[in-house]
Design a protein around this nucleic acid. Sequence first.
DNA 1: ACCTAAGCGAGACGGTACGTCTGGTCTTTCT
DNA 2: AGAAAGACCAGACGTACCGTCTCGCTTAGGT
Lengths: 213, 213, 213, 213
Amino acid sequence: MQSRTPAPRATGRPRSAAADAAILAATRAALVELGWSRLTLGDVATRAGVAKTTLYRRWAGKHELVVDAVAELFDELRVPDRGSLAADIEGVVLQFAAILARPEARNGLMGVVAEAARDDALRERIRGSIVERQKRLVVEGRARAQARGELPPEEDPRTAARTVDLIFDMVAGAVVHRCLVSSQPADADWAGSLTRVLLLGITGAAQNPAGSV
Amino acid sequence: MQSRTPAPRATGRPRSAAADAAILAATRAALVELGWSRLTLGDVATRAGVAKTTLYRRWAGKHELVVDAVAELFDELRVPDRGSLAADIEGVVLQFAAILARPEARNGLMGVVAEAARDDALRERIRGSIVERQKRLVVEGRARAQARGELPPEEDPRTAARTVDLIFDMVAGAVVHRCLVSSQPADADWAGSLTRVLLLGITGAAQNPAGSV
Amino acid sequence: MQSRTPAPRATGRPRSAAADAAILAATRAALVELGWSRLTLGDVATRAGVAKTTLYRRWAGKHELVVDAVAELFDELRVPDRGSLAADIEGVVLQFAAILARPEARNGLMGVVAEAARDDALRERIRGSIVERQKRLVVEGRARAQARGELPPEEDPRTAARTVDLIFDMVAGAVVHRCLVSSQPADADWAGSLTRVLLLGITGAAQNPAGSV
Amino acid sequence: MQSRTPAPRATGRPRSAAADAAILAATRAALVELGWSRLTLGDVATRAGVAKTTLYRRWAGKHELVVDAVAELFDELRVPDRGSLAADIEGVVLQFAAILARPEARNGLMGVVAEAARDDALRERIRGSIVERQKRLVVEGRARAQARGELPPEEDPRTAARTVDLIFDMVAGAVVHRCLVSSQPADADWAGSLTRVLLLGITGAAQNPAGSV
DNA sequence: ACCTAAGCGAGACGGTACGTCTGGTCTTTCT
DNA sequence: AGAAAGACCAGACGTACCGTCTCGCTTAGGT
């Protein structure tokens, strides 16, 4: 999450720290109950026990608020370290799918992405708060696989970065599309198939996700 | 597009056939100028030279209307038949990216997907009008590759169907994520990399997209 | 009251005639309960069983609405014809004081006058809807007194008009100032004194209001 | 102006004396620029270079503040002593009209009067700070006329007081009504006519204001 | 020379109303 | 019966002010 208080002020009553957390939690609760389009800043303010003005003082609008509220959800993703790259990928895929199964994520994510199609600042905020932030998963998974000897060390850092981008778009894109566009369950079977194709595509060597033959 | 006039009526003034096309065109024009959230049915009606009543008589609301308006855009996708599976995939990827670069598609697609997160009927409409409809591309591409001998014939039809779903989610998901979430250009370089990973993942054999070494 | 529908339209749903009356009545009720500054257009709309939009479609704002609502109150003033100019004047003074004792008039009148200090259009509306409209009382009273022989017929119409203006400002001004600024009761005693001074000032001849010696 | 610091405290930092004057001046400036309804305490505070807190520490609200700011304006009224009662009356009328032509008076006076319609305390404050305070003009003018022999000495002090009230309401009422309600210029002509009627009404004897035939 | 109580500026806070806009519906007249 | 026009109810929008509060700092008189 990026800072929303560009310069710390010396004078005046300081902003309530508790309000921020209450507002983000209320936003997620409202996303669950109302979805994106019915979500109202007035309603969020009421849920958070906060005045509407407080909300507008800190966020420019619904979009930025929901980005921040949703971004926090993805921070709980972890590379599981199950002993093989295949198992690690599958683990992350399933965690990702689990988050997208939660209504606050389902309802919020596509809403802000839809707005971002016309709003450069919002698009940057999404990239910074969600996309770039979660690429850590790919970086970490690769490092672990390299430590295990499953992947060779990178030569060119620029190529390496581009590969991270590609893999992230492929994994995240496939999961999001499966869950939110195709409206099909992203279950273990599907995650296994995805992992198999992906891993073979990266390494050229087939391997079963769970480490079995 | 699915029928919206379940039973043709005999009496009264018949519905203007031209109105339908004008409304869908006006919807796309409004998507270009205003984006999803600022698009207004009143505004669409004005642009189409039609009363709001007429619009509501034919579509249940903004969501359905935009689904229909956007779905038409994807019908121009073609499997190019450039001589190899790799080239065909890359061609479709680039066509898809080109469509997503058009504002009417960018702005409309994610908007309806966001709404679909809470609306089962809308989700089905999207699946029917867009997702399932465009899986023809995967089916056709595979058939062509099989005819060329690049892919073996399928054995189990259920497995074959599941593979189509997976490939479609991977391709469409990666392109959508790249274009709309990561906000990075889906240029020829990137399309080539994606194709290479995908093809290797499917066939286990490396091949350059453009047919070169 | 001046027309608010400059050009009658041919098409579309016509404006509800009942709404106008309901809104003006609701405005007066709100003036009674809330006074000028706490009166809210949203509240008036609720009382009238009407949407806020309907209200704004017909009036430019709180000021114009209250002018119309208050103007109607003064239409019930009548020159009583009690047999003498003195008695007629006193009757009108007391009627006027009685209206200003009603909260809807007290609360509304000065509010719009206060706004009119900075708003030329509003000032004109007040002049047209209230001031000029009620000068009929002075004109009528004078005509009656002339018929009785209490006043000589006018010679110069311009002088006559200026006299009407002066008398109206003196009567209305004195009553308004007594009731709303000085906050003293405008009872029969006071009305009698006012009438005596006024009449002597106009005719140069003393006369008791009630017709007595 | 009535005291706003009922009991002087001994300890602590004393209130800035300069702030009071700055605030009242800022209030008048804001009345000129913004009028009554757009006048904001926050804005007054900014203009006066003072914190909102300071303002609320000294006045209960907008109403009281404006009463104090406006009341000072009327203190500059003087009975001119031009040699005759008629000339004195006309002089005061014109002075009064001149004050009401100043925007800070126009805009402020009716605003507080409008609020006073529902606020007893405010009404008393207006009566004390403005109305009763300026009745001195009538008292002084009468005393001077009596000294000249134009008016007989009073017999009953209660009758005399009631006459002062009546004359004040008639003069102030007529001027205020002419200026703020009828929206007509209170020029020398009009002031002369008013004076003639008033004087004849009081004394029963005609006299030209300027002392001419 | 300290102490302490109040004043002061800044500005965040919970509220409330604003006037506008959109979503859907309903009611006209005309075709 | 359908269409164009536009009024209707409902309710969210983002802004502005209200009057209160919480800060850290200043300014005096009392010791």
